[in-house]
C-alpha cells in the first residue's frame, strides 16, 4: 500500500518525466492484466426524483427541475434504443428516492433490462443486504455507490439532508452488496469535493478492506470530476488534467486487476489520450437525463451532469479499433442458479 505521504508527493510532483514514467508503467500493467481491451457501457436514467439534498448535484431535492420517472413502456423504448446500438452493459440510475423508486420499481426495471442486456448494474439509493439479495436474484450483476468524499466534515457540509446525509450507512453499502452476492462493485470519489490526496488514500483503504473481506467481488473505481450542469457551476474546486491522469495511473499501478471506469463527463480529447493508461471501461453515446435517449427533446431534458464527449457508440467502437484496442461489449453471461 501507498502511504498518504507518498500519494501527496506523487500528486504534487509535476515533473513531466515523472508523469511520463507513471503513464508508461500504468500502460504496461494495464496491458498485462487486461490486454488491449476496453469494455463499453451506457448509463440509463430511470428517474430523477430525489429526497436527498446534496449541494453539488443536478437532481437534488431542492432543485426545481421537472421530476420524471420512466414507466415500463418507456423503459422498453429507452433500453431498446441502446441495445440496438450494441450496448450489453447497462448502468441503471435513479436519484435517491426510497418512496418514488422503491425496491419493487427497481426490480421491475431490472426485469425489463434483462430482456435487452447481458450485464446489469445499478446506481441507486443505498439499501440493506436483503434488498441487494433480492436485486441479485432479480438479475443485478453490479452495484455502483460512491462515497463522494471520505472527509466526514466535508461530507456533512455537502450532504445536507436525506438518507445520503448518513455517512456510515453509505460507507457500509459496498459491504452489504458484497454480502448479498453482487459480483461487481464500483466505488469512487467525486474529485474536487475535498482534499484529493486524502480522499484518494481513504478510497484505496476502503477498497483494500473490501478486497480482504470480500475477495470474490470484481471491483472497479471511478473518478468523476465536477462538471457544470446546464452550464451552471457547482464545483468547490477543480482537479486539473495532470492530477487526474496521475490519479488514473497511480490507481492502475497500485491495483493492477481493479477496473477503472471513465464516463463521458470527460472530453473526447482527454478520453482519447488516456485510453491506454489504465482505463478498462468507458461509457459511450451517453445521455444523463431521464428519457434522454428517445423520449425528451434536448430542451426538455434535465441532465445530472453535462456530457462532454458526444460521440456515438458506433464512433467510439470505430475509434477503439483504429487504436488497436478491442471494444468489449459483452463480458458476461447471466447464469440462473437453480
Amino acid at each position: 500500500m501507498f502511504t498518504l505521504t507518498e500519494i501527496q508527493s506523487a500528486l504534487n510532483n509535476n515533473d513531466p518525466h515523472f508523469i511520463e514514467q507513471l503513464a508508461q508503467k500504468a500502460k504496461t500493467i494495464k496491458e498485462q492484466f487486461f490486454g488491449r481491451t476496453i469494455a463499453l457501457y451506457a448509463p440509463l436514467y430511470l428517474s430523477n426524483y430525489c429526497s436527498s439534498y446534496c449541494t453539488y448535484c443536478g437532481f437534488h431535492s431542492h432543485n426545481r427541475i421537472k421530476r420524471f420517472k420512466l414507466t415500463q413502456k418507456e423503459m422498453h423504448q429507452e433500453m431498446n434504443f441502446l441495445a440496438k446500438q450494441g450496448i450489453e452493459n447497462i448502468l441503471l440510475l435513479t436519484g435517491e428516492s426510497y418512496n418514488v423508486t422503491p425496491l419493487s420499481y427497481l426490480k421491475e426495471a431490472v426485469s425489463v433490462a434483462k430482456q435487452y442486456f447481458s450485464n446489469i448494474s445499478i446506481e441507486v439509493h443505498p439499501m440493506d443486504e436483503n434488498d441487494y439479495k433480492e436485486l441479485f436474484v432479480a438479475g443485478v450483476d453490479g452495484v455502483t455507490v460512491y462515497q463522494e468524499t471520505y472527509d466526514r466534515v466535508r461530507y456533512a457540509q455537502v450532504h445536507v439532508s436525506g438518507q445520503k446525509a448518513d455517512y456510515d450507512y453509505r460507507y457500509g453499502t459496498p459491504a452489504r452488496a458484497a454480502k448479498a452476492g453482487i459480483r461487481n462493485i464500483s466505488i469512487g470519489i467525486l474529485l474536487g469535493l475535498a482534499d484529493v490526496a486524502q480522499d484518494l488514500f481513504a478510497l484505496y483503504s476502503h477498497l483494500h478492506d473490501m478486497e480482504k473481506d470480500y475477495p470474490g467481488v470484481e471491483y472497479s473505481l471511478s473518478f468523476p470530476r465536477f462538471k457544470t450542469i446546464k452550464g451552471e457551476d457547482f464545483a468547490q474546486s477543480y482537479v486539473d488534467d495532470k492530477t487526474f491522469i496521475k490519479i488514473i495511473c497511480l490507481t492502475r499501478i497500485l491495483f493492477p486487476r481493479v477496473g477503472i471506469n471513465l464516463s463521458t463527463r470527460e472530453s473526447a480529447q482527454l478520453r482519447n489520450n488516456i485510453l491506454e493508461l489504465g482505463i478498462t471501461k468507458i461509457s459511450a453515446g451517453s445521455n444523463t437525463s431521464v428519457g434522454g435517449y428517445t423520449l425528451k427533446t434536448p430542451e426538455e431534458q434535465d441532465p445530472q451532469f453535462d456530457v462532454e464527449d458526444h460521440r456515438s457508440i458506433d464512433e467510439v467502437i470505430k475509434l477503439l479499433k483504429k487504436r488497436n484496442l478491442d471494444p468489449v461489449l459483452t463480458d458476461w453471461r447471466r447464469i440462473e442458479l437453480e
Binding site: 490486454g35 479499433k321 468489449v328 463480458d331 458476461w332
Partner: peptide, 28 residues
C-alpha cells in the same frame, strides 16, 4: 485479451494449435 480477432486467428494458424479455450462469457 487480444487486441483484435484477426490477431487471434493468425496466432491459431501460425502455432498450429489444436485446442483453444474460450470463455463462455465472451461468446456473444
Amino acid at each position: 485479451k487480444f487486441k483484435n480477432k484477426i490477431d487471434l486467428a493468425e496466432s491459431i494458424l501460425a502455432s498450429e494449435t489444436e485446442i483453444v479455450t474460450v470463455a463462455l462469457r465472451r461468446i456473444d
